[in-house]
């Protein structure tokens, strides 16, 4: 069935579309009013996001456990026996401990390099409706955070500050497809550009076609002019695969980030870098294998043969 008031509706539709195009044009031209509107919205939303994060933390833990059910079946089988002993208040304690552990690791990392950091809790995961990878943290310009500052997680880089509001900030994760960082391979001076791919893996392109990269190589941030957006020396990830295709101008490799972007609870924003470049001081140490005791049994043959 055709709609009756088509003339009026079409006019309305045209007006709305023109308005939308007008807004896009204004935003692309950098009109401050639209930025202010977004900032205002975030300022209003921030307390609700903090409250939501506080209330939903136990539920989030539960959902995360469900998500990883298939991958950690053995661990869950073991935990199932212990779960009966757990009480509801321990869920909050568990969460606090996990965040404390993350915070300790971050502070260790920042302390080794001499970075001055501002710690913040993740209060919201960005919607993936826009195909972007972002999180919101509960500290903003009031805590000294500015745009384009490096953000650390417990074992390496987490991302970069994209937008700052008075009491919160939007962090573009290193897994975002728009994320690019200049990196160098620890121990050498080989440099390249690492790009996010929407997951925990990144794509590395070396800049020099005469150098090579191998699996296991550790990547560190090269650093930027005036240490923004990236401070030097931050561990980024390690090479998991190398593309040796003939005809490529420069070598490409797949990199696995040290940071697990699915479990971010506490982050640290580097507000001031160390006066000197930390070099390779932040390269994560490889886990040392625990020695397994061996039992040697000596058998002495008896003088008379047994029947």
């Amino acid at each position: 069935m055709r709609y009756g008031g088509e003339g009026r509706t079409r006019l309305l539709l045209i007006i709305l579309i023109v308005t939308a195009l007008f807004l896009i044009t204004l935003d692309l031209r950098g009109v401050a009013v639209l930025d202010g509107a977004r900032q205002g919205t975030q300022t209003i939303l921030s307390p609700f996001q903090k409250a939501g994060n506080f209330i939903l933390t136990p539920v989030k833990n539960f959902v995360t456990d469900i998500t990883h059910l298939g991958r950690t079946r053995n661990q869950i089988e073991k935990l199932r026996a212990d779960n009966a002993k757990l009480k509801a208040d321990l869920l909050n304690r568990k969460n606090a401990d996990a965040q404390l552990k993350q915070l300790e690791s971050i502070l260790d990392l920042a302390g080794t390099a001499g970075y001055k950091v501002v710690n913040a809790k993740v209060i919201s995961q960005g919607s993936s409706q826009s195909f972007s990878q972002t999180v919101t943290i509960d500290s903003g310009s009031n805590a000294g955070i500015k745009k384009n500052m490096t953000v650390l997680a417990q074992s390496g880089i987490a991302g970069v500050v994209k937008e700052v509001y008075p009491t919160s900030a939007l962090v573009m994760l290193a897994s975002d497809p728009a994320f690019k960082i200049g990196v160098r391979i620890a121990g050498t001076q080989q440099i390249g550009i690492l790009t996010g791919q929407g997951s925990r893996s990144g794509s590395l392109q070396l800049l020099d076609n005469l150098t090579t990269v191998k699996v296991g190589d550790v990547l560190l941030a090269r650093g930027s002019v005036a240490n923004r957006p990236f401070v030097p020396g931050v561990p980024v990830g390690y090479v998991t695969a190398v593309d040796n295709s003939a005809g490529e101008i420069a070598q490409n490799a797949t990199v696995r980030y040290y940071t697990n972007f699915g479990g971010l609870g506490v982050l640290a924003v580097v507000v001031a870098a160390s006066p000197s470049n930390p070099g390779d001081a932040l390269v994560p140490t490889k886990p040392t294998p625990t020695p397994i005791p061996t039992v040697t049994v000596y058998v002495t043959p008896s003088p008379s043969p047994t029947k």
Binding site: L13, L16, I17, T19, A20, L21, F22, L23, I24, T25, L26, D27, L28, L34, A37, R38, T41, Q42, L45, G126, S127, Q129, S130, F131, S132, T134, T136, E163, L170
Partner: peptide, 18 residues
Amino acid sequence: DMSQSAGGPVGQWTLIMI
């Protein structure tokens, strides 16, 4: 478009949703 996680310029989601 006012959401912090909107990737593009203001107006992009408006146009699409209309």
